[in-house]
Write a protein that binds this DNA or RNA. Structure first.
Length: 569
RNA sequence: GCGCCUAUAGCUCAAUUGGAUAGAGCAACGGACUUCUAAUCCGUAGGUUGCAGGUUCGACUCCUGCUAGGCGUGCCA
């Protein structure tokens, strides 16, 4: 589709140039040709509002401009265009010849699993950091959304020719994991009979902490009581991190997300790089002392208040290792870094970007996108608090478990991923778990998967019934003359440009919608037209070619989403 | 108070850079299995795109001001 746009664009620009030279269009030079999608076949295969844009500078009515351009397009010369029409306020609707449709078919069959890919990324190194949940509890469903989106964005970027990697930043140092150690310690001692102690404010009081503390008691009995408080908390912190991080990894694997790099905050801190950051800021005069703490002049970068980088107790706030971490990313050679943050980190974006700027990196090197919150809603429409500190949260594992109960383990991950991916990142997603489970059989993911399974089934039948499956060069594609068949091919032809826009705009949800649209053309087609017809074997052969194309596009799209493409359902 | 996000059909959501008649699914109602799989299809219905202005050939989209909801605004991460 992109190729065809540039071909048509050139033809139209030439026509405009001819019109200018014939003194029929009072402008100096042909503009870039914009294209708008055609919503109905009545508007042709592609359309351009170029005449509307030129109307002002040419001081002519838009329809007249369109007609002037039209006059200078020689249809005899361009066999790819079957017809041009002026419509509405001055749109030029372009109807492409069948040969273009057949080229699309040949291209899909030639490319197979590669169909849809492109190379606009020039193999530039891009990193996407996502999930990066604290190792202080199980992953919740917001992390699930981030996991699905991040994983798919990497797939999309790789599909358009970037060299993209998945990275998870483990916050295994700092105050949060300190509290984790303390919380486990309290539960451990409680399990051993101390009852006059409680989890402090800001600690973790989820049941999983109690369970884990009990496990420690079972394995090690009361031996850790001999340690000093500090030693014991340190030990429990490390044990807790290992345990919970392990759990998160297991969950992510089950969810089909495999990170390329697990970066550690502790490693960053131990590397001395945070000290370098302080030195750099010091040299650039971005720091000052106040009330015993060291502050960064965030107001120099337009923020409304400065922020502490070294606390009164001498420890760095998380900004410093975070800045060091991003400098480290830069040193690893990424030309662009994308962080997917949860909504609770939104206040961090401006500051982080300012720190990156303070380090001398360009403004667009770091991109931060928010994956908006997921509200768990019950059947009465009440929202449930998912704070880890409260211990009331809905885990990703629990979600997959419940889906598995309804639709089987095989499809549970498919359904979860699809639900997370079908919405734009910046929408607040109300996830009604009861609805997702009860309506599972009418889930849109099955609609798409079923379309794929039907394609497979047709080929199964074709083989059993002895239909000849010929290579495309030997098939008369002119026999594909039903309007729905052309519609299917046109839709399939959009696939590569959908991937590009989806990747560049970081809008993964366009892929599920595209696939749903494609399946939505295929199912009616299937119901109204028999592919395998013994009384018309030539047409059957041609239709098998079309079915293979649809199957290929569906499979390629589902693969990008990390969703399975079943051969039968 | 300040900052970010959101507001589109009864519900959940789409709508490439501003483009033609704002689209799907679910829910509702009526139909279609002797058929390549009915996890499907066909039909009906559903709208002042939160409100008020502005920009222009044209606005769900951009600007200003409101309203409502969410989040952020810690020497937590």
């Amino acid at each position: 589709m992109d190729e065809i746009k540039s071909i048509i664009g050139t033809i139209l620009q030439d026509a405009i140039q001819d019109a200018i030279e014939a003194n029929e269009l009072p402008i100096t030079t042909p503009p870039d040709i914009p294209f708008s999608p055609t919503k109905t076949p009545d508007h042709g295969d592609i359309a351009t509002p170029v005449a509307l844009g030129l109307a002002k500078s040419a001081k002519m009515p838009p329809r007249t401009v369109a007609e002037t351009i039209h006059k200078h397009v020689d249809l005899e010369k361009h066999s790819i265009i079957s017809n041009l029409e002026i419509a509405g306020p001055g749109f030029i609707n372009i109807y492409l010849s069948n040969e273009w449709l057949f080229d699309t078919i040949r291209n899909i069959l030639k490319e197979q699993q590669e169909y849809g890919k492109s190379d606009i990324g020039l193999q530039k190194k891009i990193q996407i950091e996502f999930v990066s949940a604290n190792p202080t509890g199980p992953l919740n469903i917001v992390s699930g959304r981030a996991a699905a989106v991040g994983d798919t964005l990497v797939n999309l970027l790789n599909a358009v020719g970037y060299d993209a990697v998945r990275e998870f930043y483990v916050n295994d140092a700092g105050g949060q994991v300190e509290r984790l150690g303390q919380s486990i310690d309290i539960r451990y001692r409680q399990a051993l009979g101390e009852h006059d102690i409680e989890i402090p404010d800001g600690g973790y009081n989820g049941e999983y902490i109690t369970d884990f503390a009990k496990e420690i008691v079972v394995e090690d009995s009361d031996t850790h009581l001999k340690l000093s408080d500090d030693e014991r908390i340190l030990l429990f912190k490390e044990k807790g991190i290992a345990h919970l991080l392990g759990q998160q990894k297991t969950t992510l694997e089950r969810f089909g997300v495999n990170f390329d790099v697990w970066a550690s905050e502790k490693t960053i801190r131990d590397s001395g790089k945070p000290d370098d950051i302080i030195n750099i800021f010091q040299e650039k005069d971005y720091l000052y002392e106040n009330e015993g703490a060291t502050w960064f002049k965030m107001t120099d970068f337009g923020d409304d208040k400065d922020c502490v980088v070294i606390r009164t107790n001498g420890e760095y706030t998380y900004f410093v290792p975070d800045a060091a971490y991003h400098l480290d990313k830069h040193d690893r050679g990424f030309t662009k870094v994308i962080d997917l943050f949860g909504p609770d980190h939104q206040g961090h974006i401006t500051r982080l970007k300012n720190f990156v700027k303070a380090l001398g990196l360009s403004d667009d090197w770091l991109e931060v996108d928010i994956i908006q919150q997921v509200n768990l809603v019950d059947s009465d429409g009440n929202r449930q608090d998912m704070s880890k500190r409260q211990g009331q949260f809905y885990t990703l594992d629990l979600l997959i478990d419940e889906l598995a109960e309804a639709v089987g383990e095989r499809y549970a991950v498919d359904v979860a991923r699809y639900f997370f991916l079908m919405r734009a990142n910046n929408t607040h997603l109300d996830f009604n778990i009861e609805l997702a489970v009860t309506q599972a059989n009418e889930n849109p993911v099955f609609y798409i998967q079923y379309a794929h399974a039907r394609c497979c089934s047709i080929f199964q039948q074709a083989r059993e019934q002895g239909f000849e499956i010929k290579p495309v060069e030997e098939v008369n594609l002119e026999l594909l003359d039903a309007p729905q068949e052309h519609e299917l091919i046109r839709k399939a032809a959009e696939f590569p440009s959908i991937i590009i826009s989806s990747a560049e705009d970081r809008e993964a949800h366009r892929i599920p919608h595209f696939l749903h649209d494609l399946a939505g053309i295929f199912h009616p087609y299937y119901n109204q037209h028999r592919v395998l017809d013994l009384s018309n074997k030539d047409r059957s052969t041609a239709r098998l070619i079309l079915v293979e194309c649809i199957q290929t596009v569906l499979a390629n799209g589902l693969r990008l989403l990390g969703i399975s493409a079943p051969e039968s359902m």
